[in-house]
Design a protein around this nucleic acid. Structure first.
Lengths: 196, 196, 196, 196
DNA sequence: GATGAATGAGAATTCATTCAT
DNA sequence: CATGAATGAATTCTCATTCAT
């Protein structure tokens, strides 16, 4: 039941934002009464926090490099992009809720990002810097590489409506994600690795 | 006065979303009374639509290539990226309002995007296709190029809080936008132009 | 168990009044679950009535003179005052619940007071009148004697917070009740008995 | 309007206590809409505090001796009792609200009593002590004199229902207050002044 | 233009109570 | 006896909006 609720709530939060979502609508969406919803989550904010927490946990796990020392920078980055795109494909509403929270100034998860994401980010930055020093990558600012990858991959979830509109189709298909993967990995890798 | 109101409203809408923004807060932000605000804009939705309209106009103008037949693809794309980044730097709240609207499913501006942006987008796509055909660009899917550029440039406005957190600074500076410009243009161009 | 519940409920009712008391809080106070509380008392009003019933029974028993024909008026009145003060000392929360009920207009116990207390009161009034006729007491209105005694003795329970505040101590002690007894009996008896 | 509201609210608070009073009922009582009530007092607690504040101000003013150095202790005390009884007669609902607040532990006005009433009380206590030392009064504990007078005079407001029930009349009349005044002043003065 | 007063339509909670197990 | 789940009926409070001045 709790899982059902969280799924339904996530969908509503993604569409209406925190303030625009009503407990009534969420309850409807889950198929229970508003009071029963409040039985499980004693307040809207608590429910939102729980939804957000789950999302952030899922997110953090994939916002940093998998530690695979045996792989080349190219392989690691390609895998990373692929993983992020899969996340956008499989959890689009989660991505939207996360996006809205951050755009609105991350009032709830600021601390969490600071204490949890930042250290992992710093570690990854160092790794990319080493690759640059070793001439495995061209001379780039690693921070911006990450901001770009995050943006480009998450946009397929967050801005899906715009993308669908531009593509002239009602829903993104697997094929589109394949193309995105192909495009992004190719562009990024060619863009940041010096030609031999 | 109207301009003042729109500026204030935009800021509030960016932070709280449509539903989370109250006429009271907007009025406060502008420095007038709620009733006076309603004198200028007879309803909250009307105010929101006006804000959004202004944003979209600004946006559309820059979401497509400037028509400069004398320039090379590289120059056009580089200018485009630069322009989009300037927009993010100069109108971050506008960008956020636009982003929230689109993430929420573009309930208000869907039609507008369909009728106004889509044709321009199609035209640009054709242009890029021609460049590809002429081997001026490598063999890429043009749609994804646009989605990526939009995402990467707008992220400096929309996700500024996250970026600032990761950079460990309270506010993005001109220098950061310079680095972003440098990084993005370099990566994109190297990424989509075959080495000679 | 029932006794435990009644004790806990009385405490809560005394602090929050009928409307301000929740079954949850009472259950908490007793150390059982709300549903279990409802197993013993099927409704909040039923519980309140029971609490009140017990209090009123205790009260009525002491709101009238003990029938001791062998004693002098002075002795009877002194004993009465003493007894009422002991009641305030030993059952302060009961007194408070009773007080709140009466102040609020006695919606529940009006009938009970009418049918049970009134006759006893009338009997006592007659007795005091006889004493007055016999010159054992000075010429007073007996009703007001009772209202005064009730008020003065119950105030040590009902207004204990104010009294403690004025006395500058966290809790009334036995000594304070001794002083009150001494003061009240002396003042009352000197006040209503003609000096010889 | 504000005065109307406060009067109506006082009546409702006196009958139902803070928790039992609803904004709806108060609004009804005043003859305005609930929302309009909230326009004037933005929350129930704020309204209650205001009502209580007014009452306490009225109360404090009369809970201590008027400073009349020219008068004898007997005169001062008699006037004091008279004044308190008038207060009970003229502001019975105010008295009830005050009583309920104190009985419930004075959650709101504890501080106020501590900082405002206590100093005045201490001053009066000292004055009575001097009278005792000067043999103008018999050897009594002054604190208890005050607690008793407060209780005896306020009971005609707070416990009016019980008193009316015992007197067998629907409402206390001026005559009853005259009798109470007569009874109380006589009993108290004879009770605390040594016969000459 | 500007502002005080008023209100209808929600929305989040609270809480007593019921039901099934 | 005890407890998790569920709900109807309030109740407080918010907020856009209207109206009169």
């Amino acid at each position: 039941m709790e899982t059902n609720i969280l799924r339904g709530a996530e969908k509503v939060f993604a569409e209406f934002g925190f303030h625009g979502s009503t407990m009534d609508r969420i309850a409807d969406n889950v198929g229970i009464s508003k009071q029963n919803l409040l039985y499980y989550y004693p307040s809207k904010e608590r429910l939102y926090r729980t939804v957000l927490q789950n999302i952030v946990d899922l997110w953090l796990e994939r916002m940093t490099f998998a530690d695979e020392p045996s792989q080349s920078p190219e392989q690691i980055i390609a895998n990373y992009v692929r993983g992020k795109l899969e996340l956008s494909r499989d959890y689009p509403t989660a991505s939207k809720v996360f996006a809205m929270e951050v755009i609105a100034g991350a009032p709830i998860i600021k601390d969490y990002l600071q204490t949890r994401l930042k250290p992992l980010f710093d570690k990854d930055i160092k790794l990319v810097r080493r690759w640059v020093r070793n001439k495995q990558l061209s001379s780039i600012k690693p921070e911006h590489l990450f901001f770009s990858i995050w943006a480009m991959t998450q946009t397929y979830a967050d801005f899906s409506v715009q993308i669908e509109l531009m593509m002239g189709k009602p829903k993104l298909e697997q094929k589109d994600f394949d193309h995105a993967t192909e495009f992004l990995t190719t562009m990024i890798l060619r863009g940041i690795v010096d030609p031999k």
